[in-house]
Each structure stands twice: as structure tokens, then as C-alpha cells.
């Protein structure tokens, strides 16, 4: 069997559009997911029972259903209640709220890793809640949350491939398209595997830099938390 490079090359525009759509969905959904994660996490650790319970319901629901079912629910079920969203909009929303649930738990874990004494000292000095969270607690979180946060972000990039099921023309959808035209499954899917790997690797490099900036030491064997 020969590797048909031309099948890929001839359809490069479709694949490039696919990569761009994957990047677009991810680069919008990841920051929104982080923002949702912060909000849900603050609710999760708040003293207000209502806020706490609604955040638990949110997290438990989204973590315990398959992502594919979430997008089907939004894309196919919501129209019955009069809410019809495009595939791309569904993609943004689902990926963001899905990632948000995981980010929330990561942030909560991070906050719990910061010693209780840091909260005591902040309160004893008379600092206000919002102020000490921002200036004392959050800056100490980065080293705890960047590694698991990176994992979730990578998972989000890869899960975005499921959006191909609801007509979003991202990379996996593009591959199906190319394969449909050329019937070269080996070439096509090997290529997009490589492209996903490339996207993930670049992303990992970026978070690696972030991690070094926030106090991990760059050593030969990778990163060590100081």
C-alpha cells in the first residue's frame, strides 16, 4: 500500500479550515471555561447553602454525563423547548460549561492546598474577602492549578472533535469530508492525528512557560514545583 500524499495536499484547504475551526472553538471555550470555573468554585466554597448546592448540582451533572450526550441534548433536545442553536454556538456553549465544571474542581483543590493560615492571616489583618482572594490566595494557586488545568484544556481541545457529530466543520469533520471525497482513511486520519498532536504540543509548550513564570523550576526532567 502506498501513502497517498496527494489526497491530503489537494484537500489542504478543507483541513486548514478544520484546524482553524478547532482552534477557534478551543481558544474561545477554554478562557470562558476558566471563567465559569472560577465562578462555580467561588459558589462551591461560599457559606451560602443555595449557591453551594447549585454549584454541586452543576458540577455533578456535567462531570457525570458523556460530553457527546451533552451536545446532543443541547443541539437536538433544546429545539423542542424553542431554543434552536447553530452547531458552532452549541459547540462553544457545551465545551465551555463542560470545561467549567472540571476547572471549578481544580480551583477548589488548589484553594484547599493553600494553607489555612494564609486565610487566617489575611482576615486578621482586616483584608476584605475579594481583596485577599485576589492578592493573597490566587497568586499561590497557580503552581497547583496549572498542571491539572492544562490537562483539562487539552481534553477540551480533543473533545472538540465530537462537535463533528453536530455539523461543526472542525478538524475531525474536515477529515470525514476529505475521506468521503478520496477514500483515503489511513492518510486522512493519520494526518489529523498529527495535527491534533501538533496543536496539543504547542499548547503544552505555552502552559509550560506559564508554569515557569509562576514559580516552578525548569529542570532537565521537567517541571518541579518549588
Amino acid at each position: 500500500m502506498t501513502f497517498d500524499y496527494m489526497a491530503i495536499w489537494d484537500n489542504r484547504d478543507i483541513l486548514i479550515d478544520g484546524v482553524l475551526t478547532t482552534l477557534l472553538v478551543s481558544t474561545i471555550a477554554i478562557p470562558i471555561g476558566i471563567f465559569i470555573g472560577i465562578v462555580i468554585c467561588m459558589m462551591r466554597i461560599s457559606d451560602n447553602r443555595m449557591l453551594r448546592w447549585s454549584s454541586i448540582v452543576y458540577i455533578e451533572f456535567l462531570r457525570n454525563i458523556p460530553f457527546l450526550i451533552l451536545i446532543f441534548l443541547v443541539f437536538y433536545a433544546l429545539p423542542f423547548y424553542g431554543l434552536r442553536l447553530s452547531g458552532l454556538t452549541t459547540g462553544f456553549i457545551c465545551l465551555s460549561i463542560y470545561g467549567g465544571a472540571y476547572f471549578a474542581e481544580i480551583f477548589r483543590g488548589g484553594i484547599q492546598s493553600v494553607s489555612k493560615g494564609q486565610f487566617d492571616a489575611s482576615k486578621a489583618l482586616g483584608l476584605k474577602y475579594g481583596f485577599y482572594m485576589r492578592r493573597v490566595i490566587f497568586p499561590q494557586l497557580y503552581k497547583y492549578i496549572i498542571p491539572p488545568g492544562t490537562n483539562i484544556a487539552l481534553t477540551m481541545i480533543k473533545e472538540s472533535s465530537l462537535l463533528s457529530m453536530i455539523t461543526v466543520a472542525e478538524l475531525t469533520y474536515a477529515a470525514h469530508d476529505v475521506n468521503g471525497r478520496t477514500f483515503t482513511p489511513v492518510e486522512t486520519f493519520a494526518t489529523i492525528a498529527l495535527l491534533y498532536w501538533l496543536i496539543s504540543t504547542v499548547f503544552l509548550k505555552l502552559t509550560h512557560l506559564l508554569q515557569v513564570k509562576f514559580g516552578a523550576e525548569d529542570t532537565q526532567d521537567g517541571l518541579t514545583v518549588r
Binding site: 494553607s115 493560615g117 494564609q118 487566617d120 492571616a121 486578621a124 489583618l125 482586616g126 476584605k128 499561590q140
Partner: peptide
């Protein structure tokens, strides 16, 4: 509570300085 805390200084067993 805010008023009282700003008038009372406290030192802890574990110092609790802000490490960053």
C-alpha cells in the same frame, strides 16, 4: 468584624507570612 480586625493585630504559631 472588619473594624475590629483592623484594630487587633495577631501573630500565629506558623507565622503565616505571604510566601509569594
Amino acid at each position: 468584624i472588619d473594624k475590629i480586625r483592623s484594630e487587633i493585630g495577631m501573630c500565629f504559631q506558623q507565622f503565616n507570612l505571604f510566601p509569594h
